[in-house]
Design a protein around this nucleic acid. Structure first.
Lengths: 153, 153
DNA sequence: AGCAATATAGGAAATTTTCCTGTATGAGCG
DNA sequence: CGCTCATACAGGAAAATTTCCTATATTGCT
């Protein structure tokens, strides 16, 4: 599962995480190499699935998505059928940015981004009508202090 | 704060969120326009801060970052000085991917990505030595069901 | 040290970005 | 309704970048 990455790969990945819009020559210069090895390594890192995708990060505020909720879910039904249904629901809803299965008392945590409390309630109503949950609580985000997609290498 | 976005902008942003590595001609074709308006609009969306940055998304598993913790923090000190110190600490630590200030009983939520439980403990020890917290709990992520950076437009 | 395998630098063709020019589209107003 | 101005658009050309090839250098192994 874990893939062998050397120091040059790490530097390249760091640069790509920082800014994926840079030219190969620019990256090559920064990591102390030339464009060919940088290009070959990026291709291999893609093929190996280390680089999943290339994307743009948008500002939620500027797009009117003012509210961020962390939803803590407990279920009474731990069978695979329930799990599959829950997974499908969560994947189908674009306001769910993240979904994690947890260890411990709380079974799932969702990160949900919506325009406002009303929009969250609409999501909440839709969710509980589609899958049965034993207990559900939401933590309301007030301010995003940090939001970094970069992984530490 | 909120910026006026029309339907063509929305389509362009959707395509960029899906894959920022596409050529302008490709995006133009998909959104039913030509490269010039697409280019002009992307430039404006950048300048307006709607597009914050362009990056690559990496697979944490493949890089040996197997553990994801959600850290719930309560503080006894609500003065600006404590807040500033906490903010600095959180921003300085690359294992903290996200930090949110919350409404309600819990004051902060962190998303922390590390190699294993031992690495989390190292982070935890460092954190509580740098800033005083009243209460701290961690939820341990077992499986990432969904992790989407795209905002719903 | 010598050989094989792999990685590298540089360069050339193909593609893409960037920006310019002229045309079309639409809003405001007499 | 038609005129005018402002804005958006399509296409094209130059500059930049990607993509891939070739020859050289480096590394690992025995």
């Amino acid at each position: 599962m874990t893939i062998r990455i050397d120091d040059l790969d790490r530097k390249i990945l760091d640069e790509l995480q920082r800014d994926a819009g840079q030219s190969l020559d620019e990256i090559a210069r920064k990591v102390g190499s030339s464009k060919t090895p940088v290009w070959n390594r990026i291709r291999k890192l893609r093929e190996a699935g280390v680089i999943l995708r290339q994307t743009v990060i948008l500002d939620p505020q500027k797009l009117g998505l003012e509210a961020c909720f962390f939803v803590l879910i407990r279920t009474a039904e731990h069978d695979p059928d329930w799990q599959r249904r829950f997974l499908e629901t969560v994947k189908a809803r674009p306001e769910v940015q993240e979904a994690h299965r947890l260890a411990g008392e709380i079974d799932y945590l969702l990160k949900v981004r919506v325009a406002n409390a009303r929009a969250y309630d609409a999501f909440y109503q839709a969710l509980i009508s589609e899958v049965k949950v034993y207990n559900i609580t939401a933590l309301l985000g007030m301010e995003e202090i940090k939001n970094d997609t970069s992984l530490p290498l």
